[in-house]
Design a protein around this nucleic acid. Structure first.
Length: 478
RNA sequence: GCGCCCUUCGUCUAUCGGUUAGGACGGCAGCCUUUCACGUUGCAAAGACGGGUUCGACUCCCGUAGGGCGCGCCA
């Protein structure tokens, strides 16, 4: 199964489908992807679904969907770990045959008691090795055994980690883990080793929460006489408060970031800067990430997720995305936005061209697609326009008189374009000696129903002569 | 409790024994300005603590404190 070219890079992303793709998993996937892509290698995808109780189809769909949205493509078909259970059992039996594993007849209750006792006596919580050297013929009747790995008790296990450095763990602290459950199903640590070996994985890149597993897995590789892949354990991402970003503490799936209006490219860029750096580079393309990404530049300490920085980056990406492309992003985002589907239904070709025309002014003031859509709301608004408090205030504050005085100026402008309208209004301002700003705000209120918008002459332009004049007339006619 | 790991501005980070400890986000102040943004200029802001090693430590070593991860017939 492994590549004929021994030096080729094969990484993998191996999520367990017990929930959505969270931000830490997304970054792990990004690193695996970038590393493989940057070295003409492959990134494989394996779904670790051996926990039949908690694995769900919905989670698998969400994870694949999240990866696709993030633009992280994998090579070949996603592998179901559970589907390979026979092979895992085969290896468990091989280990048994080699004397590297044994049957254990302890019941879950006994193990629980063992743990409780150890804890009460303030001893390390580990399996005591009851069945390690015991004759299976003394097994109690009616108890289905598990198979335990016979871990070395002396010496130490060394992990040469690309991010963590050389990590040494005393073998006395690693107990005999279960590799095959009493129901005959393999457990995680066995499955991972067998799959990574069979799939020819050259580089394992995952979160540091797997560091201890790395030691146990190393022992299994050694027991099977297999080559241990290059290991890299990246530091974790914590929440803004420094606490861990667990499922229950507001950890969000990537689809939540999509709904918050972040662009995949911005999220990739942001995530890449958590635990990894390339000198002082802050904003870089995905192509550059692929080119620059290097295991050696990985940090060791956990980082906190900072929405403010993500938002800033996202704003940068929005501003620098070409209008037409950004419109496509906005359209794709709308189904996930609050009130978005309704607006999307009303987005015909005419509306699309209005959005496109207004885009330069719109994108300048949006940090997220949510804000972009909100900024575009005036294009969708139906007359008479709903007004927010500030707009109402402006109108009430002498705005109507200003608008009335402005109406003939606008109506008399032969060419309805932003520059022509601006020239006309400025001329009027000069004649009357009133500052331009005095005209702009009432106009903005009348045309958009808010106090903020793109440049007011651009707004007049996109809205068109008829609609603009009508919106103004709605306020001045009575 | 045991094991492993981590610790530079509020946050993300640069530094690979010799720097005025740099950048970015955020903050503050100014400029620009038709609103809001953008842009731009400037300012404040860091080596957890204590010992070593060294001519010289943020960089190396030890300890302390704080934090994280792991210790399932979960992954």
């Amino acid at each position: 199964m492994s590549s004929p070219n021994a030096s080729s890079v094969i990484t993998r992303f191996a999520p367990s489908p017990t929930g959505f793709l969270h931000i830490g998993g997304a970054r792990t996937a990004l690193f695996n992807w970038a590393y493989a892509r940057g070295r003409q290698g492959k990134m494989l995808l394996r779904i670790e679904d051996t926990d039949r109780e908690r694995s769900t189809e919905a989670a698998i769909v969400a994870i694949l969907d999240g990866l696709k949205w993030l633009g992280l493509t994998w090579d070949g078909e996603a592998v179901s770990q559970y589907a390979r259970a026979d092979r895992h059992r085969e290896v468990a039996n091989e280990l048994l045959k080699r004397g590297k594993a044994y049957y254990c007849y302890c019941t879950p209750q006994e193990l629980e008691a063992m743990r409780a006792k150890a804890e009460a006596e303030k001893r390390p919580i580990r399996y005591d090795g009851t069945w390690r050297d015991r004759d299976p013929s003394t097994a109690p009747a009616g108890v289905k055994p598990v198979i335990r790995f016979k871990a070395p008790q002396e010496g130490e296990t060394v992990i040469e980690d690309n991010a963590q450095g050389r990590v040494v763990i005393p073998n006395k602290d690693l107990d005999d883990l279960i590799i095959l459950r009493s129901d005959g199903n393999p457990t995680y640590n066995l499955s991972v080793v067998v799959d990574d070996h069979d799939m020819g994985i050259s580089h394992i890149i995952r979160g540091v929460d797997h560091l201890t597993n790395a030691a146990r897995q190393t022992q299994i590789y050694l027991a099977m006489g297999w080559q241990v892949p290059s290991m890299t354990h990246v530091p974790l991402i914590h929440g803004p408060d420094g606490a861990k970003l667990s499922k229950r503490h507001g950890a969000l799936g990537v689809e939540a970031y999509r709904a918050m209006g972040y662009l995949p490219a911005a999220l990739r860029n942001y995530l890449a800067r958590l635990g990894w750096s390339h000198g002082d580079e802050e904003i870089f393309t995905t192509e550059q990430l692929v080119e620059w990404f290097d295991l050696k530049a990985l940090g060791k300490s956990a980082s906190r997720f900072d929405f403010a920085k993500l938002e800033n980056l996202n704003g940068h990406y929005i501003r620098h995305t070409p209008d037409a492309e950004l419109l496509q992003h906005l359209l794709a985002f709308m189904p996930f936005a609050e009130g978005g589907p309704a607006l999307l239904a009303r987005t015909d070709d005419a509306m699309k061209s209005k959005l496109l025309k207004a885009m330069p002014g719109l994108k300048e003031r949006a940090k997220t697609l949510v804000e972009l859509l909100k900024g575009a709301a005036f294009l969708y608004a139906a007359r008479p326009l709903p007004m927010d408090d500030k707009a109402r205030q402006i109108v009430a504050d002498g705005g109507i008189a200003t608008l009335a005085a402005l109406t003939p100026v606008l109506a008399g402008t032969t060419e309805w374009t932003a520059p022509a309208l601006e020239a006309a209004v400025k001329a009027h301002a000069e004649q009357t000696g009133i500052k331009l700003g005095k005209f702009a705000q009432p106009l903005r209120a009348a045309l958009t129903g808010t106090s903020t918008s793109p440049g007011i002459f651009d707004v007049l332009d996109v809205l068109g002569r008829e609609e603009s004049l009508a919106r103004i007339a709605d306020l001045t006619k009575d």
